[in-house]
Design a protein around this nucleic acid. Structure first.
Lengths: 175, 175
DNA sequence: CCTAATTACGTGAGTACTTACTTACTATAA
DNA sequence: TTATAGTAAGTAAGTACTCACGTAATTAGG
């Protein structure tokens, strides 16, 4: 991975997350990265290849992020760790940018990409089963759906207090 | 409102909801509506004016939709009516299209437009207060956040079973 | 170890096509 | 007769992508 190739990736991630995939021109990406426009196509083939490269890189990040949660065997601790995700995401600006991009392109290209979340959903389902929930799969999905909603607010509603909301929701699973 | 003007509005709503605002060309709208491209600009000034017209029309629809819920004085019934929203939205395809557009442009243009939901949030807050909830405002917001999450899944995740999820969530507020 | 050949990296100026929007014009109705 | 509704054919400014051309790095052979 050359220096300029990485600069393209970083510039594209930022611009895609800010302005969307289709609305971001390759010209703009090249200017932000400080390279010639042609270099983008040399390295990634076409604009879509660039997007795929960004997505793939992010998926690997996500796996690392989820690993610690999924491995937890104590159900209560697992749920606690799940709620801890938010803080991790908020503290790392590059990670936050990547997740913003994820949601943006979800809506722009209308693909949900559930496989990314599947291990997390399964782990949560198992935890709720151990805790005696009658419908552990639905309870797990409810948590993830709530996460989607939180993300919508966090990224789009100015002044939305995530931490307060997460704290309130988390408390429902504490006792 | 002339016949052709309305055809433009309908075509634009559909295309914006399907492909997004920026990605839909005025040329395409004109072809779908069966009018000349220039007529769009005669009636709406520019592409943004067309979007505004669609949004405004939809906001009026939303007010009508929420009115029945907001007016309800019995807290339990109010919450029940809130959960009934889903069925109403799913049964009316034009309404479904409008809400899809709402979420799409939220992410595309990064504006949340909370004022539209405010009366609903206030009404729910009041209902939870009457029912003795310690933090009725947060509980109300939780419901709306959940709705955002459900919408994300419903519109983007193929094969997502909304009714089952809504039913499960609704049951938490029944007793 | 030096040189020659090959590959990978990088650019600037082009390509054909699409974009939102304009203009000059006609038909229709009040 | 005057405003309104409607059109066809433009326009300049993008758009993703290509191409001919260099230069730097890597490898191969004597």
């Amino acid at each position: 991975m050359t220096d300029k190739k990485e600069k393209i990736l970083r510039a594209a991630l930022e611009l895609f997350a800010e302005e969307g995939f289709k609305s971001t021109s390759t010209n703009k990406i090249a200017k932000k990265a400080g390279v010639s426009e042609g270099l983008i196509f040399r390295h990634f083939g076409n604009k879509d290849g660039l997007l795929q490269a960004i997505i793939q890189e992010g998926e690997e990040q996500a796996k690392v992020l989820f690993a610690d949660i999924v491995m937890e065997s104590d159900p209560k601790k697992l749920i606690e760790k799940y709620f801890g995700l938010t803080d991790k995401l908020l503290d790392n600006p590059e990670m936050a940018n990547f997740w913003k991009l994820q949601y943006k392109i979800k809506w722009e290209l209308e693909i949900y990409g559930e496989h990314k979340m599947e291990p997390l959903e399964l782990a949560l389902t198992n935890a709720f089963k151990k805790l005696g929930y009658k419908k552990p799969d639905l309870e797990a999905r409810l948590l993830l759906i709530n996460m989607d909603g939180m993300a919508t607010r966090y990224y789009l509603q100015e002044g939305f207090n995530v931490k307060e909301m997460v704290e309130y929701f988390r408390n429902k699973y504490k006792q």
